[in-house]
Amino acid sequence: MSVSPSLDPLVTRLRAVGCVFAEDEARLLVAGARTPAELDAMVAMRVAGLPLEHVLGWAEFCGLRIAVDPGVFVPRRRTEFLVRQAVSLASPGVVVLDLCCGSGALGLAVASALGEVELHATDIDPVAVRCAVRNIAAVGGRAYVGDVYQSLPTTLLGRVDLLLANAPYVPSGKVALMPPEAREHEPRVALDGGSDGLEVLRRVAAEAPRWLASGGHLLVETGERQAPRIVDIFAVAGLVPRVARCDEPEATVVIGTRPWEATTSRPGPPAVP
């Protein structure tokens, strides 16, 4: 912005509406505005409760700037742990599927970390898919509109090495308890996991073995208390489950691996530290 206003009045306005990191937000808003009038409009949107990422048009995730359109789920910092787990299990050249992809942040982050991959992404929300298309185009990714596996090309059956599924896992009765930024400005379909929070994840796990390559991995983010039930769900689906946890930020990821088949000619999975 050509004009550099004092941050103090902006910080005061942002603090008054409960912005915890008001100073950081003020700097980002000033940097993102091209004119004083645009800055005023952006601050007004933020004060009205629009998520900062929707005001700016992007979110920082795994060191990348991810485009996030209004109404699209904002990638959370805790989900970077899922990306790190996925990257540790793979090498360049793998086939990656970002299920319930939202903005496509997970697939893009994994592809950027590994280098050349074959990336596919899908989401039931066409607004999210349009956003994902823009984000993953730089790494040659393709995105589809559909419910879970519904719209994926059948050529992916049995070929997916990394299946990333940041599916909704908030129980329906607890969505109303989420922060207003989420429940009022992100699509409910990206938050509501059904009566116990696991309805979508059950569907994801049940079909995962058909899409996974031998030795391929399904990774899902979940709440710590839900993890034992997801372990059971993965086991019933024929996957070998394990739980990975991170204290900072607090994150829980359940990983399910399709067992290697004796007849496969693919090399074994890489060692995990």
Rank of each mutant, 00 (worst) to 15 (best):
I66M: 06
V95K: 08
A67V: 10
G215Y: 11
M45W: 07
A271M: 05
E207K: 14
A16F: 00
M1Q: 11
G71F: 05
T12D: 08
V43Q: 07
L152A: 04
Y149H: 09
T35R: 12
P187M: 09
E224T: 15
A213F: 04
S151Q: 07
G223Q: 06
L39G: 06
Q85S: 13
A251V: 11
V231E: 11
P267N: 11
A31P: 00
G238R: 08
V240P: 00
P273E: 10
L39Y: 05
V47M: 06
F81E: 04
H120R: 12
V11C: 03
R46C: 11
V240S: 05
G107Q: 05
A176L: 13
E53T: 13
C246V: 04
A33Q: 02
G268P: 07
P249M: 06
G194D: 01
R46V: 05
S112R: 15
V55P: 00
L106N: 08
I124L: 12
G49C: 05
V139Q: 03
V3R: 15
G93Q: 08
V160Y: 02
G256D: 01
R130V: 00
R203L: 09
A109E: 01
P171M: 03
E186T: 08
P228A: 02
G158F: 11
A37D: 10
A271V: 14
V189Q: 13
L163K: 02
L152Q: 04
D232K: 15
I255N: 02
I66A: 01
G197A: 07
R78E: 15
L163C: 06
G141T: 04
G146Q: 04
R202W: 09
P209E: 09
V236G: 02
Y149Q: 11
A26S: 03
V236H: 12
A213E: 02
P51H: 07
V20R: 15
L99A: 13
D123N: 06
A16P: 00
R229M: 10
V117N: 01
G18C: 12
D40F: 02
V117Y: 03
R130H: 03
A251M: 05
V74R: 07
L99P: 02
V127D: 02
S4L: 07
P5C: 03
V231W: 06
T257K: 14
L212H: 14
T122W: 00
C100Q: 07
V189K: 09
R183S: 12
E53D: 08
A105D: 02
A113H: 11
A121I: 08
D98I: 07
F81N: 10
T12N: 03
V160D: 02
V43Y: 04
L56Q: 06
N166H: 14
